[in-house]
């Protein structure tokens, strides 16, 4: 019985490989573009990056338009024998599915591109990984919960008491 099962499992693995391609994985490309690009040319550059990924048979899952950010420290890049210092850059990212062999080729291509200050290719997951605002809000809420509870209870208690007292006083006056 056992050898039969093994064969079946092997067949399944083989068929899975055929379905999903050789070695497809989810990757993320984070990049910093040089700040000398003008606002008008930015969408063009953004399109070029997406096109480049697609040209290596990458299937784009999600991405974000590059935004200008102040860098936490100054970066140096030599472009055509000139040392360039950068304190700001356009930061953008794209998430895509690609063959593991193709990613190396993509990296080699990006290495030669003078428009990139730096880039980072990471293995990641398909799901959306950014949920910062919600979690920060929740966390802040957690911290405030004990304080607000106390104040809410206090506020609720006071008006009820006042009304009751008023009624009691009215009753006293009436009598």
């Amino acid at each position: 019985m056992k050898p039969m099962q093994d064969n079946e499992i092997k067949d399944e693995i083989a068929s899975n490989d055929a379905d999903t391609g050789v070695n497809e994985r989810v990757y993320e490309l984070g990049y910093l573009l040089v700040p000398s690009i003008t606002e008008e040319n930015l969408p063009v550059m953004y399109g070029n990056v997406k096109e480049l990924v697609s040209s290596f048979k990458g299937e784009i899952i999600s991405d974000e338009m590059p935004k200008i950010i102040p860098l936490a420290y100054s970066m140096v890049k030599v472009i055509s024998n000139v040392r360039n210092k950068f304190n700001t850059a356009y930061f953008g990212w794209t998430k895509f599915v690609m063959d593991s062999d193709k990613v190396l080729e993509l990296k080699k291509k990006l290495d030669l591109d003078p428009n990139f200050v730096r880039f980072l290719i990471l293995k990641t997951v398909k799901e959306n990984t950014i949920a910062a605002k919600r979690f920060v809000g929740r966390d802040a809420g957690h911290k405030r919960v004990p304080n607000t509870h106390k104040t809410v209870e206090g506020e609720e208690a006071v008006p009820i008491n006042k009304e009751e007292i008023d009624k009691e006083i009215d009753a006293m006056i009436a009598v």
């Binding site: 984070g30 990212w93 980072l120 990471l122 990641t124 997951v125 799901e127 990984t129 950014i130 949920a131 910062a132 979690f135 920060v136 929740r138 966390d139």
Partner: peptide, 15 residues
């Protein structure tokens, strides 16, 4: 506690 399964390098507020 916050149900974060993948720690993303872009989430600098958390980091």
């Amino acid at each position: 506690a916050n149900n974060i399964k993948y720690i993303d390098y872009k989430d600098i507020e958390i980091l």
